[in-house]
Design a protein around this nucleic acid. Sequence first.
DNA 1: GTCAGTTCTGACCGATCGGACAGTTATGGT
DNA 2: ACCATAACTGTCCGATCGGTCAGAACTGAC
Lengths: 182, 182
Amino acid sequence: MARSASAMRGQILESALRLFAVHGFRGTSLQDIASDAGCSKASLLYHFAGKEKILTELLTPAQDAVAALLDRVAGLEGGRLVEETVVGYVDVALLFRRQIRLLFEDIAEMSCHQDLSVMELADGLLDALAGRSQRAPARVAAWMVLGAVFITSATDDEVVPDDVLRAEMIRSALRTLDHPPS
Amino acid sequence: MARSASAMRGQILESALRLFAVHGFRGTSLQDIASDAGCSKASLLYHFAGKEKILTELLTPAQDAVAALLDRVAGLEGGRLVEETVVGYVDVALLFRRQIRLLFEDIAEMSCHQDLSVMELADGLLDALAGRSQRAPARVAAWMVLGAVFITSATDDEVVPDDVLRAEMIRSALRTLDHPPS
DNA sequence: GTCAGTTCTGACCGATCGGACAGTTATGGT
DNA sequence: ACCATAACTGTCCGATCGGTCAGAACTGAC
């Protein structure tokens, strides 16, 4: 066969991205990628120095986009800074959503593989956070709160004390949901 | 030794939770847990039917807590529903933050193991989203936006069209940051 | 002391996976 | 036609890991 180098490389990257997004990085073997791309596993390792290098090449454009965004807002301040950053970040995230998804698939597969009914619980939480509304604005805001609290809890910013963190998370979440302070 | 069954089980669970939270579920082998708990790998598998069962036992209390929360807010509606759900969810998330962290460590280790400087970029994004403020409310809100957009992008709620999703994500994020609409 | 039952362990197994390597096939320049 | 180089492959290897199993060590009841 011996097609041109760039063609095979592109095919490998595309197969890898798709399989990673479905089964996660660790859940996808080099053989899986090779079979999907239509070449041998050895051919994979001819084009890429290792499995991680494939992931790196897949993630680098997203990293560059964020770096470019940070560069673009470097000189701004105040309201313009926040607005531009938010819009830019959302656009980058949506542009590279498949890459983001591949990061989560390992988690999802791990959570679902057992008898835990996390999905049902997440749905219930989503409904309640959206105030039982099915409208898009409420549902999107609920999704964001779900993710925001989840990730923020996992971080350990030892600068912020726990009680302050709790209070600010609640306030922020209620703002996200457009809920007037009581 | 042959200590009482519950003592060894508890020791194993504690070691597993700590190691999972540091190296992730997949990044921790049964041998690692056994060494940390001070027993043999075979003894692990005497107390737990498999590696996943350990994870299940670690995650079940958190699942039960969420289920209890959903049960508690089942009869509420309107403002009370949202408030109770948010406060309850934040409390559960903070209570089980180590369990949540273990879910993310696999991602973190995967992202950091390569030459990508994701941490610096995340910090830069955090600063910009917080409007260069170092105050706790701004930083917590920035963290939440960071996680919210990240997770929401990874979900595919095919009910909401992409352009609507983008607009609502931006609006929600700006609300989270307490940014007045322009 | 005896014995049944629980707890624990060393040794082993099968499977999987990432990667190495020598050799083969195709390509393009001359 | 020739050949250097790039592209590709089959095969093998070492390491890791989850899990099994027969049997040892310990315990408490009698």
